[in-house]
Design a protein around this nucleic acid. Structure first.
Lengths: 165, 165
DNA sequence: TATTGTTATACTCTATAACTATA
DNA sequence: TATAGTTATAGAGTATAACAATA
């Protein structure tokens, strides 16, 4: 077990968590109002839009966005129903499903992106100097890479339920 | 409408969102396993534990943690059922409800905190230098204050639903 | 045997609207 | 009239476990 965090660490941690919570909430509201999308759905579409041939396998698509297979199956199903992606078998691996973004999906991402960016700028970037931005980008990129490399640590102890479960 | 974000801004934004998502997920898992709490519930208890007389009104308690009144009523009800808080009328304002953390609630926060901190340190602070920590803390504190001061902007356009709604 | 993905199911969280009571 | 809080209800998200098919 480790020592307690210094107060500075604790304040930093809470400021980070609260800020991103507020930002996430604002972004969700915008995406929902402007494009009928959740943030997770936006992320999935954005990843597909950036992918080499505008398509990825379910497993590739899940990475970092969703934390359970079934969750992704569910979201992919919703996006498919909405005509934003298609799903088909992979020629290379018969087990895999290839998810491809449609023209409608690309159009929706394009439609929603400017406003999304506007929200991020208003909430996150407005109070930052150029130096702050460089710092923050450098730090959070390093943190993200570190976190991605962490072993899952699938719960040190047995699971319990939250009150009310 | 604003210009597109510089690529550096976009990368920073995504790195921030993904990092905190991973951190949040890890923290939730820990809290659930170790104390049977969600992160929201932990936040509520932590706020009460720090409050002047270990109690706050519902409105004070909601601030920044929860985005709807009914959501807080629900969570407070769960915590009360679990014996972690009590609710009673306020002497100063008959409309208000005072939420007080119990000894069991304080004990649970104390039990859970070291491991919580350990998770935050392992994922967030390990890859950071002291200078990084100072930078990040200073920046995120400023960002949080800025966000708190933002007007709600209750959805620029009419609401729609996500696919599948 | 391990991996990919789906299905069924259950539960948690959240939000909206209608309502009560007090300021 | 405005504010504090609760209730009822419905919807959206997520996770677990069991399953089918392929590597």
């Amino acid at each position: 077990m480790a020592d307690a965090l210094a107060p500075e660490e604790l304040n930093t941690y809470f400021a980070l968590m609260e800020s991103v919570s507020l930002l996430h909430h604002a972004v969700e509201q915008h995406l929902r109002a402007e494009g009928g999308l959740s943030y997770v759905q936006f992320q999935l579409l954005a990843r597909l839009a950036d992918a080499p041939e505008r398509r990825l396998t379910m497993t590739e698509l899940a990475d970092g966005v969703v934390y359970s297979r079934s969750g992704l199956t569910h979201q992919a199903g919703l996006l498919e129903q909405a005509g934003l992606v298609t799903r088909g078998p992979s020629p290379h691996d018969q087990r895999a499903t290839l998810v491809t973004i449609t023209e409608a999906g690309l159009a929706l991402v394009a439609k929603v992106l400017p406003g999304h960016i506007e929200v991020a700028r208003r909430l996150l970037f407005d109070p930052l100097s150029d130096a702050d931005l460089r710092s923050l980008g450098e730090i959070m990129t390093r943190v993200r890479d570190h976190m991605r490399a962490q072993p899952p640590r699938s719960a040190a102890t047995r699971k319990r339920r939250a009150p009310g479960a």
